[in-house]
Nucleic acid binder design. Structure first.
Lengths: 227, 227
DNA sequence: TTCTTTTTCGTCGTCACGACGATAAACGCT
DNA sequence: AGCGTTTATCGTCGTGACGACGAAAAAGAA
């Protein structure tokens, strides 16, 4: 194997959540060169005996203090342009994580400061390396997956109302959805959500039924994005 | 960078085509250890100054003698279990290619012999490394993409009939589709196919209109797979 | 010619969706 | 207590796409 070109392999995470009616991404401020002081996706080097999903989960827990099962984690893609890291040849495997809102400062165990930033407020070229493109790909993947999977519930706490789920769609897609048609679609699709039996209390308006995530993995037919 | 664990990075290709009413995959017989004599996906090491898509295109042309534009090439996923290659730590970026039927023996410039094999005839554990799983993921990706993209045309020659396109769906999905409803769907979806103006000659039955691939990149609404 | 094969055009019932109207069930205020 | 506000939930209606077919058109084969 020694005759083959040596690469460094990293994992980078696009961690998305919905906070205050905005789609937010978890970013860390880099403490070292290159791109010192710039925002970047959380990530790090894969260890020599570590599986790729394990490396992604490790970085996620290091940065958020949260184990995966609460949300969703999937491989997004691999980026390896020869000039993407000035330190040398680094190939990064990017992962997409969708999490419920976990309160504010992530208090990472890591050195660098981490924080949630609204995706819409980021300007192109603001992130280190090629993280602008990775983030854009992650957001696009998330938008597409809301259409044909029940993954919007990954942005919600374990028990949620139809209105909360609708707010996720409206925030991620940047559109408005009719509450009545959305309610019909969600409750009428087998396996999308399962009723808990209880309702909310102390909120404004009529109490809403609580639901859990269903067992379906695909939406047939899909949730349609307004033209 | 020297303090970080060194990896070898490869690209592997899942090259699919439709031949004789069967979904076929391009495989090479390994000439060296490990897995000598076993079938494997074509692939090879990424060079030190080479971009990942460039490495995939290079391997594809080396194995098939064909430039990409005739078909479709996209990144499938990255596989990096620590024990997936007995020679050491190798991470592979897998790519999915959909090509029209290019006649039989691929006559690769490479040493090992390459050939098309029907996917349905392969038994689990028959391929080297973790290529069984990579192939399964590629086939599943192709099946899913036929639903919501016009990519079925990538399996067809530049000019094709509606019936040829339908045969692609039927072969990849393993189902039968109603010729009349399929015709209505394909010709009625803007941008799916564009009429050439000419028709087939010398075939059995009524001559069929010829079409080219349209400009659409997504199918709205999607082509529905029979339950 | 007549039959067979294949393509292409229609028809009809059903179902899902978008656009609403209407009702139900809580709270806050006077 | 009564009333307005807010939000959730249930219906209705028209439209458009789809599945299941029937039927005509256009070629080669017998």
């Amino acid at each position: 194997m020694a005759e083959y070109p040596p690469f460094a392999v990293t994992v980078d995470l696009v961690v998305l959540t919905v906070r205050a009616d905005e789609l937010n991404v978890l970013l860390v401020r880099r403490g070292i060169e290159p791109y010192r002081g710039r925002w970047a996706l959380p990530g790090g080097f894969v260890q020599i005996d570590e599986d790729l999903p394990a490396a992604a989960v490790r970085e996620l827990t290091e940065e958020t203090g949260l184990a995966e099962p609460a949300g969703h984690l999937e491989q997004l893609g691999t980026y390896g342009r020869p000039d993407r890291d000035p330190r040398g040849r680094v190939v990064t495997v990017a992962w997409l994580a969708l999490l419920p809102d976990l309160g504010s400062p992530v208090a990472g165990t890591d050195a660098a400061s981490a924080d949630w930033l609204p995706v819409a407020r980021l300007t192109p070229g603001q992130l280190a390396f090629d993280h602008d493109r990775i983030l854009a790909d992650g957001v696009e993947r998330a938008r597409a997956k809301l259409e044909y999977t029940p993954l919007a519930a990954a942005f919600c706490p374990p028990e949620f109302t139809v209105a909360q789920l609708r707010a996720v769609y409206e925030t991620v897609w940047g559109t408005r959805l009719d509450p009545r048609n959305f309610h019909r679609k969600v409750t009428g699709t087998p396996g999308f959500v399962e009723p808990v039996g209880r309702a909310t209390e102390g909120e404004r308006g009529r109490p809403a039924q609580l639901f859990r995530r269903g067992t379906a993995t695909l939406l047939h037919p899909p949730m349609l994005r307004p033209s």
